[in-house]
Design a protein around this nucleic acid. Sequence first.
DNA 1: TAGCTAACGGGTCTTGAGTTTCGTTAACAT
DNA 2: ATGTTAACGAAACTCAAGACCCGTTAGCTA
Lengths: 206, 206
Amino acid sequence: MESMEPGTVRPGGRTARVRTAVLQAAGDILAERGYSHLDLADIARRAGVGKTTVYRRWGTVTGLVADLLADMAEQSLPRTETGSLLGDLKANARLVQRTLADSRQGPLFKAVIAAATGEARTAEALRHFYDVRVDEWAPCVQQAIDRGEVPEGTDTHEVIRAVSAPLYYRLLAGGGRIDVAAADRAAEAAATAARAGVFLSEGRPR
Amino acid sequence: MESMEPGTVRPGGRTARVRTAVLQAAGDILAERGYSHLDLADIARRAGVGKTTVYRRWGTVTGLVADLLADMAEQSLPRTETGSLLGDLKANARLVQRTLADSRQGPLFKAVIAAATGEARTAEALRHFYDVRVDEWAPCVQQAIDRGEVPEGTDTHEVIRAVSAPLYYRLLAGGGRIDVAAADRAAEAAATAARAGVFLSEGRPR
DNA sequence: TAGCTAACGGGTCTTGAGTTTCGTTAACAT
DNA sequence: ATGTTAACGAAACTCAAGACCCGTTAGCTA
């Protein structure tokens, strides 16, 4: 049996500090220079940590990004409740909009998505990240169903994804700035479609 | 004044053959192994071309991907016309769905999008690729406006983008298979929202 | 069809990302 | 407090991606 992963036996003090510093530095560099020109040695230098340590703990760039994502998934903001489906979806859309338009977070998300296209482990981490976010917001659609705003049997998760999708499309494929108007439009489109029963889950509902 | 780009003075015969072979090989490898483990030497070997040639003509991986995109943009399929907005949008959605779900094109698009996040030139090529596609399909929304199906002043391009967005979201962020049901739902959502006037361009219409 | 040279391609060299080694530091148990 | 060893970190090493050199092939022109 091979030895355990480093950082699991003595997670206190220094080990935790190193992880924080490296993830911080990785996020900074990812946001500044993007995924492609990313060098673990740079990260180590900026984090004030030995290059060897970064290679030993994370191994590859994608592994590091996966850990960064896991860290980000834990910091999910609580959703706000406004009392109407459109209000809630707009709140969600603006949260996403603010994140993607942010000068640090925007490039970071681009980089992370790019990393996920290459390696299965990172893709899994990214999927989990979005699952957490979508789970957080899906209840607002359920409340709309309970209020009778949206038909029974609607796939609540799909509605939330429909709000984010146009904003991510802009981030990656271009097609306009990611501004508040775009966010509101995405929310309105999703709300309108949901009310019309477009997101009814056919066949067996999950 | 520096010398011209290679391939511009004698574009006939061999030069064209080399370009075709290299782009073909690059697409194959990109689809098989993804953007991250992409090696220009591999491409050269598979294309039956000297490694030096690939480096001289394209320089970097991202430069090659940009050229690949320019090549793909020229092969835009003509749109079909069904006589109704929903029918046209469904046709578009299924075209996108078929492309992204395809075992060669799907990974290729992932790779190309990943490449575009890193370098401005590739991002520009990608944006142009989608502009061509969106321009091709936008008239079907205009026809819907003329028929009175959709309100005057609707941003036709934005409707087309709204159809693709959920499918690309699935490709990159997960959240379900890219099947015909997802395509139809995307088309229905966009059509419903468009009819409700969600995509009216506020302020100055472009 | 002959000459000119753009463009190709085999071979060699360089550089830096990633690995290995081994001595040092500090977390945890007693 | 003190011992054990997990985890860190500086330096030396490896090896392949990518740059360079220069002889060869073949588009283009007259």
